[in-house]
Design a protein around this nucleic acid. Structure first.
Length: 666
RNA sequence: GGGCCGGUAGUCGAGCCAGGACCAAGACGGCGGCCUGCGGAGCCGCAAAUCGUGGGUUCGAAUCCCACCCGGCCCGCCA
């Protein structure tokens, strides 16, 4: 909690945070008084870190365990110290948001908030600042680049990659709301083998105009081409192995792999018979397909005009499909960076020169290697980069023996590029890349960016399994993001049809879209990014508690109340909201600023999904218990309406942060 | 062999970084209640947890340290 207690944000409303700061100040005052009178010498200590949330409301709203620490030094019982501290605190402090300070067994000091004042502060702040309530601005804004998704433009975005997109997009929303200058970048990995294979197949077919969604159409060509070539290569290797008779183990493994690919091929053939047979014929006419692909890669790196035109054309076709999918999920990018540009502008070559000059590279069979381990030892980076002392860091191949570059090399160049434009770079990438990210980071350090290395942030995304099965894009075993969105929309549509038959179909469709998109985003965000999770349809399609629909339903209910009321009036005061359900709801609202800033600073969107669910839950409880529209006591009615309006404001802000879309009716 | 990350009720999953009232949040599933007043996609209640295992540190450990076990991932002239 310590880092959420900042100075200099007096002008920004943070009701619960203000209460917390008041408790800290009061306790600090009491502690320094104790320091002067105590016969034992008491060192300065962090009062903030002793402040915690009590387990239940009967203990107040915040508590301190300071007495337990002091008990040891003073050789007294914690409860006695607690009583003394509570007494001094009460005497010395001017209490504003604190209602009471009490010492309780076994030695806690419990602070109770003055709920009348907290209510007024919270509701007035929300009323005055509206959509800005809670979005505490950082005191140190940073130009931040969030790179995410960066899917290979060779096949549609699948649900595993979508997890990456959703977290990346949400992080950007959070940081931007926190006051950072954020830009999202999509890194188009177009110089690798996969795009070359895709272009090869596409070219063989005579560059057809896509039928249906372009990424799906071209993705199909890629899968078929890649499979056919894989089989060709495996067959060749098997023949070679049998001829040289080197190792039975290799033969067995290759045969097994071949069998697997033949199975995949059969599957693809049944799905896309026309393309499969056509490509099969065309590829068999090529004496050396593998070489054709290598040629494409080589020529593209050299920016050969015809090759460049082809590669860019086919990549762009796929990217149009990506954009459509991402737009559907409310994900947008500020910039699309072509990996090939890094080569053509000489950035990669420049980087290689710098690395060579550093003296940490060596030649291995014509390939250029970076001695990462040596670098780490030389500069004592183990501690700095948090590397285990027994870990032998492998070297990193920078260029192939034919001189062409590799992904990691280009990624280092890209890192330099990004840091020319930002103070902080966040890479949202799967956990399987953790070693690669470490190597890139180390190389970045070598290039002289010592200070910036601290702001190189790897945000790992845990693997997403599909109903217990590992997804494999290469093997065509995956569910696309489009499928998930479409399925969820159709499911949401039938729910809306069932529950709200009286609204026009056009609106029902729009509502279903919103509920579905939100449901998918919420389901992904509600589990921490790093955890590997199992994608289960039931969870995404669940519209009950702890889902986006549950949150939307709170909003819809509030809309219902307002609709029923028609014209609304301002209450004279805010002194009648004393029901426990109301107070619990207000307390939750008062904590939003702290929750938001912690979520943004810790890069933890999941925290906000938990919070928004809790807020919705408190609202539903309030709704069930407190009448509004049929109240005869007008003052109470308008006070409750004020609370409803406040909840709506905060729900809308949260929806904006998480990329959820709220429907008035559902 | 080495490394990284995870392990919390039948299932999913917060809390762990900054140890404290933890007889551990919340959800799904199970069981039982609540609609002649703002929409039941809701609310109320019950049952369900050796916090992976074993040690250690501490007045106090789900949380910190050590060892081990299980699961995922990585250690390519792939990306």
């Amino acid at each position: 909690m310590a880092q959420t207690i900042g100075q200099g944000r007096q002008n920004q409303a943070d009701p619960f945070g203000s209460f917390r700061r008041e408790c800290v100040v009061a306790l600090k005052t009491a502690y320094s008084s104790l320091q002067q009178t105590s016969e034992h010498s008491l060192t300065d200590m962090s009062i903030e870190s002793t402040i915690e949330d009590p387990p239940n409301p009967t203990f107040g709203h915040l508590a301190s365990s300071l007495s337990f620490e002091l008990a040891r030094i003073q050789k007294k019982k914690p409860i006695e110290i607690a009583k003394t501290l509570a007494e001094i605190t009460r005497q010395l402090s001017k209490l504003n948001l604190i209602e009471s300070i009490e010492a309780t067994e076994p030695g806690y000091i419990n602070f109770r908030a003055n709920l009348t004042k907290l209510t007024e502060l919270t509701l007035k702040s929300i009323q005055q600042t509206g959509p800005n309530y809670g979005l505490l601005k950082t005191e140190a804004p940073e130009r931040t680049i969030v790179e995410h998704t960066s899917a290979n433009p060779a096949r549609p975005i699948h649900i595993g990659t979508a997890k990456n997109s959703i977290f990346g997009d949400t992080l950007a929303r959070l940081l931007s709301a926190r006051g950072h200058i954020v830009r999202t970048h999509f890194y188009i990995d177009d110089t690798g083998r996969q795009v070359a294979i895709m272009a090869y197949g596409y070219k063989l077919l005579g560059e057809p105009t896509p039928v249906g969604k372009p990424d799906h159409y071209v993705g199909k060509i890629y899968s078929v081409t890649a499979t056919l070539i894989e089989i060709e290569e495996l067959k060749k290797r098997l023949t070679l192995l049998k001829k040289t008779n080197l190792s039975d183990m290799d033969i067995v493994a290759t045969t097994k792999s071949l069998d697997e690919w033949v199975g995949i091929a059969a599957d693809l053939r049944s799905k896309y018979p026309a393309e499969f047979d056509q490509l099969g014929k065309l590829i068999s006419l090529d004496p050396d397909p593998e070489n054709s692909i290598r040629e494409l890669i080589r020529k593209y790196e050299k920016k050969d005009p015809a090759t460049t035109a082809l590669m860019r054309r086919v990549s762009r076709t796929v990217l149009i499909g990506f954009e459509e999918t991402l737009r559907k999920a409310r994900i947008r990018f500020d910039q699309w960076d072509w990996e090939s540009d890094l080569l053509w502008t000489g950035r990669v070559a420049e980087l290689l020169e710098r690395l060579k000059e550093s003296g940490f590279t060596f030649n291995k069979g014509g390939a250029l290697e970076l001695d990462v381990a040596k670098t780490v030892e030389k500069f004592g980076l183990r501690e700095k980069l948090n590397i285990s002392p027994t870990f032998e860091i492998p070297s990193l191949t920078l260029t192939r023996s034919d001189g062409t570059s590799l992904y990691a090399t280009r990624d280092i160049a890209y890192t330099l590029y990004k840091f020319e434009r930002a103070d902080r770079v966040i890479n949202v990438i799967g956990t399987e890349q953790s070693l690669a990210q470490l190597q890139v980071k180390t190389a970045f350090w070598i290039t002289g960016h010592r200070k910036e290395t601290e702001n190189f942030i790897y945000f790992p995304i845990g693997h997403l399994m599909l109903e217990g099965q590992r997804m494999s894009a290469r093997r065509g075993r995956y569910v696309t993001f489009d499928q998930v969105l479409d399925e969820t929309i159709s499911r949401a549509k039938s729910e809306v049809d069932k529950r709200s038959p009286n609204i026009p179909d056009e609106i029902r469709q729009r509502v279903a879209d919103r509920i579905a998109i939100s449901a998918v985003r919420y389901a992904i965000l509600s589990v921490e990014a790093i955890k590997s999770t199992n994608f289960v349809w039931d969870k995404v399609l669940n519209f009950e508690a702890n889902s986006a629909a549950f949150i939307n339903y709170a909003y819809t209910r509030s809309s219902g109340i307002l609709r029923k009321l028609g014209k609304i009036s301002q209450p004279k005061e805010l002194n009648l909201l004393i029901d426990p359900g109301e107070q619990a709801l207000i307390l939750e609202l008062s904590k939003f600023p702290e929750t938001f800033s912690k979520a943004a600073d810790d890069l933890n969107p999941t925290l906000l999904t938990l919070y928004v669910n809790l807020l919705a839950q408190r609202f539903h409880e309030f709704y069930e218990k407190s009448d509004i529209s049929h109240l005869s006591n007008n003052e109470l009615k308008w006070q409750r309406v004020e609370l409803v309006l406040a909840v709506r404001t905060v729900l809308k802000t949260l929806a904006e942060l998480l990329g959820l879309e709220l429907a008035e009716r559902m």
